[in-house]
Write a protein that binds this DNA or RNA. Structure first.
Lengths: 218, 218, 218, 218
DNA sequence: CATGAATGAGCATTCATTCAT
DNA sequence: TATGAATGAATGCTCATTCAT
């Protein structure tokens, strides 16, 4: 009840620290154990706080996950959009390479994100929103190039943007986040080259004689 | 064994009925509630059997899931391999269309499958194995056409097979299995056309002057 | 409904076989897994009969255990009372040696017996009754030798009989039935010598000239 | 940690109370129902705590049993090692008498202990370890007196220690812990006298002048 | 703000026993 | 007699959440 001069600040600092600890711990725990297998107890233990303190900063486990993921996923999609070189083919290389690298580095977070999204509608919504700009950016890219007549006329840019975005995302997921962590995989360089190749041919203009398309066997 | 005249048949029929009820119930429950949220109790209740009966037909929850999924997923990937028309472009259309349709129809099962895979290493393994033939088939297709010189020389068929397979899978997942069930989506015809288009240009031969590749915006 | 000449006999023989199989299987299962850990399913599987058949021959698990044990334990105590040599010290040696041997050979059955007795009053009662002659025999022995003035005057034969009987029984139990099965133990010869020594001095009078040791009845 | 003025004490007291209630309840339940028949639910009900609280204080049922028994059994074997009178024969009397009394008073716990040991290898191990000092102490006693030439030369002290220890233990078990609780038994005084008598003659040298019996130290 | 003891609903799994055939 | 499918009660354990201090 006495008037405290600078106590509030210290208290606030303390709170921030605790919040930071908890967020950090939650991130680590979700990353290593996944959404459902992560427990509040594990998180508070990792954060060296009391069990109850968790509920001072998060409404519940779901909320903590959302907060962790919002931050993490934003950073991940951003990392994947790092500024790129001037040369176009190389530019695409850099972008894809960055995205794959982020995926490989945060395997656990991606797994947790998808797991969480499947168990919790709010997480799902959040993810969809964080993901949208990623696809929209591809669409904008295609649109712009269409105006420059570099894109094949008949390309449905909306569908193509979704398809190419999905291709990268899912390829990365299946390649890096699924299967045994230490498993042998196609080396990243080769993967990037292949993806760039598919991208370029899929979207950009060129003489593509339909007659050349062969029969697809079963 | 040789004691009962023709009763075994009756018993057997009863057993088959129970098995069918349980499998059906398990399928429904997994489909509507997901992997983790599905409980043995819910399944047996839905099947109108005693709780313990579940363990007469499944080793455990995971096993039930595997059995449900093996059946369902196999059917799903097979649908995408349905015999197809003579015209190659149409053939691809039919295959993709079938795959997307199945996906749209079994949104819940796919969600459950991925959720399960992320929570249970065995399920993950099972899925990877069910999925492999799907990708391998694409690779074989590309290889065969390469020998017919219909495929671009520089195409890395392994990477491309994974990439194109992933594209379809993830597109389908993101498009049909994520988001609100009733949400408005791009109409399926347009989607199929777009995907076929990307496929054909990505893999098959044509003059694609690198010079034509434009700058990619950020 | 027709008059069957020798069908009954065959049927009876079949029944005996089933009964025998079940009893044998039950014995094995109880011996290897103990009372509580043994399950009806394991027993019927071992006996190659249907689950339900078990209840044709036994009222329940407890009953099966009682039947197995009655037989087995009787045999065990009897084996331990095998006819013995004429020389008294050696006679005692033979008797103790036999008892210990039986114990060592049927470690599992003893464990199961005691476990069962502790969980089931009927088993307990049965055991007490099977055990009683064992102690009474010792008591009779001491009494007889008292009349021959070979026993110390002040010996309370009743208590001594219980004490010496218990000593052997428990020693055997702790030595052979408890602890790791393969554990190193004091070699049996030395054990027998020690026990004989304690017995003789505990009960018999004066300087124990081997000649003084009387015949042990059976 | 430094936040709460003196509340921790109150909380701590509360926690101690709960711990005490649970331990007490567990003890009672194990004593009256045995190891296997005791359930966590029964214990928490008896302790008036929530089911989950049990796992705040015990890792699992086995752990609770171990904790109950460690406490009880230690006390029981110690009772048999209570400081004793100067007169050696009386000293032995006191020790044996104490042991038997404790046994008679805790019939249920002994039963549970043995039952538990037969069902759970860890409990068995724990018991063997609690029991060992009891036997070793006897052995040390005999060894010491051997040096004072009060022990018969030919006595195998290791075997004798096991044998005499077993005798007392098993006698007590069979006499007090088995059979109907209210059954008529040989009166305790007579039992003690008999056991002492056997002990002394079994182990000590020659004509047993009471004076010759040495002090039994700890 | 922080603590951590307490709660209790929830779940997978086992198994003795029954009974229709 | 024999079968084996079906039953369902019972139990140990986890963990998100609350709340008195």
């Amino acid at each position: 009840m006495a008037y405290e001069p600078q106590q509030p600040r210290r208290r606030q600092r303390r709170a921030e620290t605790t919040a930071e600890q908890l967020l950090q711990a939650a991130r680590t725990v979700f990353e290593t154990r996944g959404y459902q297998a992560a427990t509040v107890g594990t998180i508070t233990k990792a954060a060296s706080t009391a069990h109850g303190t968790f509920y001072l900063y998060f409404r519940n486990k779901q909320d903590a996950f959302a907060k962790v993921m919002e931050d993490a996923v934003t950073r991940m999609y951003q990392e994947a959009q790092a500024p790129w070189a001037a040369h176009p083919r190389d530019a695409l290389r850099v972008a894809l390479s960055g995205f794959l690298q982020v995926f490989a580095d945060h395997r656990g977070l991606w797994r947790a994100l998808i797991e969480g999204a499947l168990q919790d509608a709010e997480i799902e919504k959040m993810w969809m929103e964080l993901r949208r700009p990623f696809v929209e950016r591809i669409e904008r890219l295609l649109e712009r190039n269409r105006q420059a007549s570099l894109i094949r006329d008949e390309l449905d840019t909306t569908v193509a943007a979704h398809a190419l975005g999905s291709m990268v995302e899912w390829f990365a997921f299946a390649h890096y986040a699924l299967g045994e962590p230490g498993e042998d995989r196609v080396p990243q360089d080769r993967v990037v080259d292949g993806l760039v190749d598919v991208w370029l041919h899929a979207a950009f203009a060129g003489t593509l004689a339909p007659a050349a398309v062969p029969a697809l066997d079963r």
